[in-house]
Each structure stands twice: as structure tokens, then as C-alpha cells.
Simulated assay, not measured.
Amino acid sequence: MTKIRDGIIGFCVGDALGVPVEFQTRQALSAKPLTDMIGYGSHSQPAGTWSDDSSLVFCLMESLIEFPNLDLHDLADKFSSWLYKSYWTPHGVTFDVGIATAKAIDRYKELCIRPDLAGGTDVYSNGNGSLMRILPLAYLLKGEMIEDRVKIISQVSSVTHGHPRSIIACVIYIEVAIHLINGLSLQEAIERMRETVKDVYKDTNHTEMMKFDRVLNGDISKLTVDEIESSGYVVHTLEASLWCLLTTDSYSDAVLRAINLGEDTDTTGAVAGGLAGLYYGIEAIPEKWINPLARLDDINDICNRFEAASNA
């Protein structure tokens, strides 16, 4: 399969590993680090349970299967079905809902506004809620021109997160993912992403682009763990995921390092896990972490259908 299961299973495993320790501090996880798939904990869910991150990834995949040219209304409707009707949830219950995402879906349903106008656009609406679900677009957009990639990423992000900062973070992530899908090394993928993103956004507000200075201009691998934050802020999640990949040499180490940063462990684990899965391949993901995944048959099925739709 064309790296679809690599990225999606990698993402979902990272999510499920992080769910039981979400909200734990870095200090607590430093004293007792996560080393394996466990259950219960923060959300009282069995081992292998993934969160809203994976649910919304699967919603995006389902929508792209049905509408390969993108239908934002269908996508927003699927997000609504997840929030209100527990669509694409691991055990039939919606839990761990991001505030900005919930507000955007409420606006879409209650105000009947255009889906890409539903997401918050103020500076405080820059949680990681669109970054965490954007990965499937890498498969859809890998053959498109950069202008078209940016346009579609902007539309899909804006269903829940419409601020330029959230959109730029999604563009950066997808550019790295596309280059990994195409077989580049991690360092090459990041360098190519930097060239493209700096060119595309050369006329963008300098203050806004400075938020991504460590990703676009510095050597993030040289930062210490104390310089990496792991909150739900979109820039923190993006930086942490890249740092974890650059400072480890296996899927397992990258994802566990991401989760053991603490705080928003499921999302940092998922975002790092998606890229790590693409980079190392599904063969590098321990089977003992894949096999417990909730609805694994359904996940494999949607990957198969997504591949078939992508190749249609």
C-alpha cells in the first residue's frame, strides 16, 4: 500500500499511546515514563483507544473517499456527526473534544455558515485541532502544485481553525509528509519544506512568520528538551513533533519521546507518529501496539478504501 497505512497507523498508534497519560506533567512522566501501550488513566479508556485526533482523521478520509475533489459541507457534516452522534469514535462515545473545534462545529450547524468560515480566526484560536487531523491531505495533494496545496489545506483547516498561524502550521506539516511519502530522508524533507514554505509566504506578515522561525530557520534538533514545549498550542505541537523525530532513530523512540514531553500527549504523539510512520514504515511499528487498536479492522478497511479512491 502506498504509505497510507504507514502514516495512518503510525498516527493512530501515537494517539492511543498518549491517551492514558494526557494532561500529565513532564515532571510526572520523567519520574515514571510511558514505555508501552497501557489502558485507562486520564480518560478511563481501555488500551488501544484513540481520541478525537484519529476520529477526525477518519472523518476526513471518509469524506475524501466519497468526494475526492473535496466537499467542505460533507466534511463539516461528518465532523458534526462525530461530535453529536459519536460517528467514527473508538467505542461509540465522543470524548476529549477540543474547545475551538467544538465551537466551530456549533457555529457551522447553528448559524448555517460556510464550512470554511466556521473556524475561529482570532489569535487565541490557534490550538492544534486542525494540525492533528490534516495528515490525509498529504496523500491527496502530493501531485498538486504548491498553490493548490496551500488553498486546499487552508480550506480544510479553516473548518475549525481559520487563523493564518494554524494554516501555516498545517502547510508545513503536509509539506514534510509529502516529501517523506516521496522517499526523501527526514533532513531532506525538512529542507525542501523550508524552501517551499519560505517562498510561498515571502510576502506574509513578518511577525506571523517569526512564530515559525525555529522550524524554518534554526536547527531544531539542537534544542534541549527544556526548550521544547508540549501544550495544545499549534506551534508547540509542530515543533515538538519535528524535534522528536530529529532526536531519535526509530518509530518507537520518536513517539515515546513525544508522549513523555507531557501535557497534550495524545496529539503530540499522534502528530509525531504520523510522520514517524511515514519515515520508518509500518514494519517499524511494534505489532503489540498495533493489534490492540480499537476498530483495527475498520481502520485497515478505510485505509484500503482511501487508497482505492486515491488511485481511481
Rank of each mutant, 00 (worst) to 15 (best):
292 P>F: 11
143 G>L: 13
163 H>C: 01
20 P>M: 12
260 N>T: 03
305 R>V: 09
154 S>V: 07
155 Q>F: 09
283 E>N: 14
169 A>L: 08
193 M>Q: 09
281 G>A: 10
3 K>R: 14
264 D>W: 07
35 T>D: 12
218 G>P: 00
120 G>L: 02
50 W>V: 12
73 H>V: 07
298 D>A: 03
302 I>P: 05
291 N>C: 04
204 T>I: 03
64 L>N: 00
271 V>G: 01
132 M>G: 06
93 V>Q: 13
201 Y>R: 06
200 V>C: 07
301 D>K: 14
67 F>Q: 02
89 T>I: 03
55 S>P: 05
115 P>E: 06
258 A>N: 01
308 A>P: 07
42 S>D: 04
113 I>M: 14
51 S>P: 04
55 S>N: 07
180 L>Q: 07
70 L>N: 08
26 R>P: 00
224 T>G: 11
85 K>H: 07
137 L>Y: 07
50 W>K: 14
88 W>A: 08
184 L>V: 00
247 T>K: 12
166 S>Q: 02
165 R>Y: 01
49 T>F: 12
178 I>Q: 02
257 R>G: 00
264 D>Y: 06
8 I>M: 06
67 F>S: 02
219 D>E: 10
48 G>F: 05
124 Y>T: 14
240 A>K: 10
177 A>C: 03
75 L>M: 11
304 N>A: 15
61 M>D: 05
74 D>I: 04
74 D>K: 12
62 E>A: 07
144 E>R: 15
237 T>Y: 10
308 A>H: 14
24 Q>C: 10
63 S>I: 00
69 N>P: 00
188 E>L: 08
107 R>Y: 08
28 A>H: 06
109 K>G: 02
35 T>N: 14
69 N>I: 01
245 L>G: 08
147 E>H: 15
58 F>S: 01
52 D>T: 03
206 H>G: 00
227 E>A: 13
181 I>K: 08
226 D>M: 05
164 P>L: 02
175 E>L: 10
28 A>V: 01
290 I>E: 11
96 D>H: 12
112 C>I: 01
175 E>N: 13
133 R>I: 06
162 G>Y: 01
304 N>T: 15
146 I>D: 14
85 K>S: 07
215 V>K: 09
137 L>C: 11
312 A>H: 15
27 Q>R: 13
198 K>G: 00
124 Y>A: 08
307 E>H: 15
100 A>T: 14
53 D>E: 02
72 L>A: 02
264 D>P: 01
287 E>H: 10
188 E>F: 01
85 K>L: 03
226 D>K: 12
42 S>Y: 14
19 V>H: 11
310 S>W: 15
215 V>E: 08
75 L>A: 04
170 C>Y: 11
142 K>R: 15
213 D>T: 14
222 K>Y: 09
154 S>D: 12
13 V>K: 04
280 Y>V: 04
216 L>R: 11
144 E>T: 13
290 I>V: 15
304 N>F: 15
298 D>T: 00
36 D>W: 05
154 S>G: 09
295 R>T: 03
228 I>Y: 11
109 K>I: 05
245 L>E: 04
106 D>Y: 06
299 I>L: 03
278 L>T: 06
141 L>R: 13
144 E>Q: 15
177 A>S: 09
272 A>E: 03
1 M>P: 11
297 D>L: 02
202 K>Q: 03
138 A>R: 11
296 L>F: 00
98 G>A: 11
246 L>R: 12
106 D>N: 10
120 G>I: 03
101 T>Y: 08
